[in-house]
Amino acid sequence: MSSPSPGSGGDSPPRRPAVIEMLTVIAPLFAIILLGFGAGFAPRLLQASPHLNAFVFYFALPGFIYTTIISAPPVGHFPWAMPLVVLVVTPTLAIGLYYLSRAMGGLSRDLAAPVSLAGSFGNVGYFGIPISIGLLGPEAGLTAGVVHMVHNIFFMNGYPLVRTAVRTREREGAAASFGDLMSRQLWPILRRGLVLNPVFWFMGLSLLVVLTPFSMPELFDEPVAMLGTTAVPLALFCVGLALHPALQGVRSGAVPVLPIAIGTAAKLAVLPVLTWLALLPFYEQLGPVWAGTLIILAATPSSTTAFIFSETYDGDGRMAAALLVATTAVSLLTLPLVAALLL
């Protein structure tokens, strides 16, 4: 005789409240972030942060995504609505934040680009993938990995390309031809973001393994899986370390409070709601796992990459730093609420 399902009146234990369930998933993540933040008071560890981040990006994260995808139960289909939602909703919010900040004038106008970036670029890899798996089950590993790839292709290429083009035009005016701009500055960005990006290579390999009879030998899979197990704890530890330069950036100069509040609200509330509204017409095609993954990833706090990009391409990372700190802290409250609405 088959065992009764939860909620059917059998002997199965009742499901925990969604808020409690989400807290059990995210509490260890925040504990590691706090551990990293505490370790950041040791100068030697803080100085090691760039090297740890490089290890995560080039080795641990590709291994984590590859192993997560090939070991996830099949989801049955890849809905075309998924990239449509990601590539319409998130850029729309980013553009809206940019022009809203410019309309506010003053220092907010000058910091419009960082607000736009940090208010829409989420930590979908380090936060989103493990939270999706913990909340929705192992089948969310594949969906979260694919959404992560689409999301990062857009941000990790789009923002550097746009900001480089804008700043070059501002500096050189009409003298900067498109061909020269492409060969000197834009192509190197595309090469780093796509051709030399190990995450995308391993994502492509994992999809090849999942969608075709092709498979990799155990001598490849096992070391990759071992590297992948270090990705989430080490990445979150690096997030904690990154809070130190972020806080220093905030303390080093005046950062307007209103854009911080607007960017935090946009990232943690507006983006998940817009994503939910956008996927409603496609829910039958997406199903609960794809839809739930899209909402969870939309609700993640700002990525540390937003701070790095703002420092590199805007020349001032203070606003992105402030949003990194604010969204990371506030997400401890908002993510359980998202779980309650999903479950």
Rank of each mutant, 00 (worst) to 15 (best):
P213L: 10
W187Q: 12
M319R: 05
E139Q: 15
C238G: 05
Y66S: 07
R171L: 13
F178D: 09
G96N: 07
P336R: 01
P217Q: 02
R16C: 12
L205V: 08
V124C: 15
A42C: 12
P198V: 03
S183A: 14
I295N: 08
W276L: 14
G158Q: 05
L23T: 09
H244F: 11
F127S: 03
L111Q: 12
G204M: 01
G315Q: 00
V199H: 08
T143W: 08
L29A: 08
F282D: 01
P138G: 00
Y126F: 15
A18Q: 06
L29H: 02
R251C: 13
A174P: 13
G249D: 13
F41N: 05
A340N: 11
Q185E: 15
C238W: 03
A320Y: 00
I129Q: 05
L161H: 06
V88M: 06
G36C: 02
T264W: 06
A321W: 08
P74D: 12
L135C: 01
G240Y: 05
L268W: 00
V162E: 07
G36H: 05
A54Y: 11
T67K: 03
G76P: 04
L271G: 05
V150I: 15
S183P: 03
W276H: 11
L219K: 00
Q248A: 15
A176K: 10
I308Q: 10
E222M: 11
V56N: 09
A339P: 06
V86Q: 05
G122K: 05
A54H: 14
L93K: 01
G179T: 01
T24D: 14
Q248G: 14
L211Q: 13
N123A: 09
A298L: 03
V210S: 11
T24Y: 11
T300L: 13
A291P: 04
F41V: 02
T264M: 07
T328H: 12
L343T: 14
L324T: 01
R16F: 12
V250L: 15
V89M: 01
P198D: 05
V75H: 08
A269V: 15
V115L: 13
N152Y: 07
T305K: 00
S12D: 14
F78I: 11
A278N: 03
V162T: 12
A320K: 00
V239H: 11
F282L: 02
M104A: 12
I69V: 15
V224E: 02
G9K: 03
F37H: 15
G36L: 01
A278Y: 04
T168N: 13
P74C: 04
F282S: 04
I129F: 06
A269I: 14
V86C: 06
Y66V: 04
R191V: 12
G36A: 02
G137M: 03
W276S: 14
A118I: 00
G40P: 04
T293V: 15
A27H: 09
L142D: 10
D314S: 14
N53R: 11
V147D: 10
L61H: 10
L297Y: 09
F202S: 10
F309R: 01
L227F: 13
H51E: 13
L190A: 14
P73M: 03
I70P: 06
S2W: 12
G137P: 08
A254L: 13
A118L: 04
T305Q: 10
P217R: 00
F178K: 01
V166G: 07
V150N: 04
A321Q: 09
